[in-house]
């Protein structure tokens, strides 16, 4: 490759941490994009059919971009990375694999994730891996439409009162139950910072997210679900060392470490059905 893509030597440690982060980014967007696409034909109105399909297309496009960066580094086929990896090596946050539930859950989850995406992409503007930094610059320009859309709906449901607000409050509770691993970076946090790939901490990402989300709850006098999301650094390091064994409770499981719910199996079954019917075919 002719371009200089990083100022750091491309050591094994650098490459391992980078590939891990790219798969986190890609798997998050793919899971969220697929769930968004499932509203096609079912959304409350025609505009939302279009909005969620358009958002799904953007997100899956962003996932494809991150998979291509992995492919450039590790030589693996981008489609195979998206469609042929088993559940236990997927790195998406558990929140994003959950089924869509009702409209309120969809909006609450999408709002929370969109703010997190923005915070994470802003941190990536300082990445020393040039293709990633350039991609983040471009993707941020697109994402603000998603964010605006989810904010508008979040406030609309909160301020509507009645069943809409009740459903949103219930949705927020469910979202918070699966929130903790969203902010974690798996086993590579140290290298990601040390190598300058993602020069920020899990705690800083969480706090930047909090600064955006908390005022939204205050504005609509929504009950702040509190400490479940308020991770201490101890919680965070604990989460990244959680063991894969029978004793790990649902809430302690960490998607970044491949610990997923049955919902990801169901998602992958549906999403990869065509791919598996004739692996390697060009469609």
């Amino acid at each position: 490759m002719s371009m200089v893509e990083t100022t750091r030597p491309l050591t094994q440690a650098y490459k391992d941490a980078l590939v891990h982060l790219l798969l986190v980014l890609a798997d998050d967007d793919l899971a969220f994009g697929h769930r968004s696409s499932q509203w096609l034909g079912l959304a409350p109105d025609l505009e939302e059919d279009i909005a969620f399909s358009s958002i799904a297309q953007d997100e899956i496009g962003h996932a494809a971009f991150f998979y291509r960066l992995v492919s450039d580094l590790a030589g693996e086929d981008a489609d195979a990375l998206a469609f042929a990896r088993p559940t236990q090596v997927r790195k998406n946050a558990r929140l994003l694999e959950q089924q869509n539930g009702d409209w309120a859950y969809t909006i609450a989850r999408a709002y929370v994730y969109n703010i997190f995406e923005q915070v994470r992409l802003e941190a990536l503007l300082a990445s020393n891996y040039l293709p990633l930094q350039q991609g983040a610059t471009k993707i941020l320009r697109e994402e603000r439409y998603h964010r605006l859309h989810m904010e508008t709906w979040f406030l609309r449901l909160a301020e509507a009162g009645g069943e809409a607000r009740f459903r949103l409050e219930t949705a927020v509770e469910h979202v918070w139950a699966d929130l903790s691993d969203l902010f974690t970076l798996g086993n590579h946090q140290h290298d990601l910072i040390h190598e300058g790939i993602l020069p920020t901490t899990e705690q800083a990402l969480y706090e930047a997210w909090l600064t955006e989300v908390k005022p939204m709850f205050d504005r609509s006098s929504l009950y702040w679900p509190g400490n479940r999301g308020e991770l201490t650094s101890e919680d965070l390091s604990g989460a990244t060392t959680a063991k894969v064994d029978g004793s790990t409770s649902e809430e302690e499981r960490n998607g970044r470490l491949g610990q997923h719910s049955e919902h990801l199996d169901e998602l992958l079954q549906t999403m990869t059905e065509v791919y598996r019917s004739e692996a390697g075919a060009t469609w």
Partner: peptide, 13 residues
């Protein structure tokens, strides 16, 4: 403004 999302990613309705 009808919808910020249109028939393609780059267009609104």
């Amino acid at each position: 403004v009808v919808s910020l999302f249109g028939p393609t990613a780059c267009r609104a309705v």
